[in-house]
Structures are given as structure tokens and as C-alpha cells.
Simulated assay, not measured.
Amino acid sequence: MPTLGIDLGGTNARAAVVDEQGRILASAKVALTERSPMAVVEVIAQAAASAMAASGGAQVRGCGVGAAGQIHRDSGVIAVAPNLGWRNVPLGALLAERLGHSVRVVNDLAAAAWGELHAGAGRGATDVYVVFVGSGVGSCVIANNQLVRGAGGVAGELGHTKVIPNGRRCGCGELGCLEAYAGGHNLIAQAREVLLAGRSPGLAELTEGDPSRITPLTVERAAEAGDPAARELHERAGQMLGMAVANMVTVLNPARLIIGGGVLLNCPGIRRYVVEGVQALSSNTSREGLLIAEAELGDDSGLIGAALLGL
């Protein structure tokens, strides 16, 4: 019997009916017009109903949810979800009551990693480290075919390791996190600051002076064209990511490192910093036999992984 997978982002909720082999039978997406917990629950319920109808009325035996944020291990309570502005929201209980199914809530990167392990770039491996850099920086550890979740359920939060004491404020509310410098959203914010301060003629030319047109790829192109301010931001983000991921390879000794997310897949320069950082900075023994692979499932990894975890 298939399972329902939910991918909850900051702007949309996606739902899919997924079979035991990780194949999507049907899916649906509904935009979030409000971000209050009950409004989001209703949007998820709407997406789930649409996906099940599109599957021909398939019966599901449970539900898994991947959500961006820090999630308590067993309760399904979202401790912090910056994109939604949530703190301590019992999403698992709210959804179980609304959907009438058991619900398991995990971090979106845990869901994506589980999907890649079983149906994507992680097939055949048992010890995997997954890093996605998109609007934020997320990671997940799989050891001996098991998610490493930690005592409270928030293990593997690479984006919230500290890289500069008392540095930039992160969306999690803390200071100096890796995500505050290398996540796509914060990289754009830093680039807007230097553009508005008149310090980046390269960005000004590429965007025609419009801060809303800045993307991580814009920063990369300005950096490669020789703009000093853009190069500083680009190098700092790339070097921080490369060192952070290399250190995790040294600590974890995975067989496979899977990288993905919009920034790493669309910005080859930043991706190169990560790959070269791992090759240069992780310990020799930890990277023996290490395979670095790009995520294969794209936007579907979280849906598939959430559904399989919902089993």
C-alpha cells in the first residue's frame, strides 16, 4: 500500500502518493497564502486530497512530512521554522488529527537524504552525508542505513554551526552561522548591501542597479568578472562551505557525499569550492574511497523520502 509524502516549503506545500519502491504515483502542489499553523494544515490537506484523487483514489497507510526547520525527534513539534515564522508548532499532531493518518515529521533535508539513499544518488551505500545549499544550508547524516537524528532530533545541522563568533544574524536567530554567510538567501542579502553602498560596480552592471535582480549566480558572475566586493562574498561563502563540508567528511568518514540544492547545482564556482575543499582539507584516510555525487531526484527527493519515512 502506498504512503503519502509531504514537502512543506516556505511558499508551497507539495503532496505525493508514493509506492514502496519510491515511485511517485501522483502529486499536487498548493500555494501557501497564509502561514499560520492551521492555515498551513488546511493547505497540506488540500494538496494531499488532490494527490490521492489524481492517483485514482489510492488508499495510503501513513504520511511523512519534510519541513524546513528544527524538529523535535519524536513529537513532530517544529521547534524553529524560519521560513514560516514558527516556533514550537505541533505539526505532527495537528496533521494527524486533520488527515486521519499517523504522521511522521522530519527535517526537509532528512527527507531528501532518505529519498536519495533509496531512490537516487545514494543507492547501494550505507554511510552517506548529504549537503544541500539552496536558500539555506542543510545537511543530513545517514550511518549504517539509519538516520542520525541526535537526542533531540536536530543532529546534522551544518548550516547552524558557527563560523564567525558574534557574526551575522542567521534566520534561526543566532549569530555567526554558516548559513548566514553561505545560504542563498543570505548571500543575496549581503550582495544587496554592497550594491546599495555603491561598492560593487559589477553587480550594478549585471542588475542595472536593481537589488531585486540579485541571485547567487549574479554574485558568482560578478566575482568571476573581477568585481572585488562580489569576489569577497563569493570566496568567503565558497571557502566556508568547503572547509565545513571537509571537516564533516573527516568526522563522519562517509562512503558517499551527495551534494545538491539550487546554489550548488546552479553556481559551478561555489560547487567547485566545496569539491576542492573536501579534496584538500578532509583527512586522507577519511576520503579514501569517497564518492562525491550530485543529487539525482531534484525537487522530488523530499517528497519521496518523506513518504518512505512515513512507512
Rank of each mutant, 00 (worst) to 15 (best):
P2Y: 15
L311Q: 15
R271V: 07
D210E: 11
V30P: 01
G202I: 02
L91A: 01
C170G: 13
A230K: 04
L203I: 10
G69E: 08
S27C: 07
G64S: 15
E276W: 05
R287D: 14
D74K: 13
L281Y: 10
A182D: 03
I292N: 12
R272Q: 14
V154K: 12
H101L: 14
I188Y: 00
D108H: 10
P165A: 06
E193F: 02
A81D: 03
L206M: 08
G302R: 02
I292A: 13
P201W: 03
P254R: 12
W114L: 12
L281P: 06
G171H: 02
T33Y: 04
L175E: 04
A54K: 14
V154N: 12
D108P: 04
V148G: 05
S212K: 00
E179M: 01
L233Q: 09
M1W: 14
V103H: 08
G9Q: 15
L241Y: 05
G156W: 09
L117E: 04
P216A: 03
A51F: 04
F132L: 10
G124W: 05
A111N: 11
P211V: 02
E20Q: 07
D108N: 01
R35M: 09
G226V: 04
A225W: 05
D299P: 11
G57C: 13
R221W: 00
D7E: 15
A39N: 09
E208M: 01
L206V: 00
D127I: 14
D74W: 05
A16P: 11
G198F: 14
C63I: 08
G159M: 04
R104M: 03
E193M: 04
R236V: 03
A51Y: 10
I270F: 09
S282Y: 01
V77I: 13
L158V: 02
D74F: 11
G269F: 09
T215G: 00
I304H: 01
A125L: 03
Q70R: 14
M38T: 06
L257D: 09
V130Q: 13
G22Q: 06
A39V: 11
A223F: 01
